[in-house]
Amino acid sequence: MNRCQRCKVDIIDDTVKCPLCHGVLVHDENSVQHQPLYPTISQKGQALQWLFKITIFASIIAEAVCILVNYLTTWQVKWSFVTGIGLAYACFTILYSVKRNKSHQRKMVMQLIIGLFVIFVIDLALGYKGWSVAYAIPSAIMSMDIGFGVLMIVNRKNWQIYIMPQIWMVIASAACLILAWMEMDVLPLFALIAIVVSVIALAVSIVFGDRRAGNELYRRFHI
């Protein structure tokens, strides 16, 4: 073992300097080679950080080019806003999908929420005709309902975890129906179908899910 004469302590590490005062150690000739207690750790996550930076930087450059071209050509139709929203959505998708601390249900729901928002903003940017809440968003919700149904069948052992996303779909479709109804004179058929599909999907899970569904809801809503 080596000794630091200044700190008056023995240093077990295989080193020439004291970790406390950085003074040179007095080497004990009789000491045996020490096996390090800890491994050397390599720095991780640098590649991912670079991927994030490059993605965001490239998106900003691409959007700047789009705005410039749009301004110099057809500024009456502001299509560069649509490309901007599309690029922002692509960035979100890339960055969020590689997050390691989010479950796949959460990733799917977040992807949908942001996706719906993007559709709504595109509709707004193109002069708001109401097609987003009347057709696009209800279609996306129904696709998610079908997606969760498929996942329940595939992940049979743990199917009850998809009940909460189904509840969120009911809430999203209800919001969509109200929005569409406010904008249109007649009852929006697509939005109505979406809420019916979402409610039926949830009802099927609860009724046929029996105790497992009940327990899942009890756990999620316990006070």
Partner: peptide
């Protein structure tokens, strides 16, 4: 650790490098 040593305690140090 110097204080412990001053008080007459034998201390050995090991780090994670």
């Amino acid at each position: 650790f110097r204080k412990l040593s001053e008080d007459g305690i034998n201390v050995s140090i090991e780090t994670n490098g």
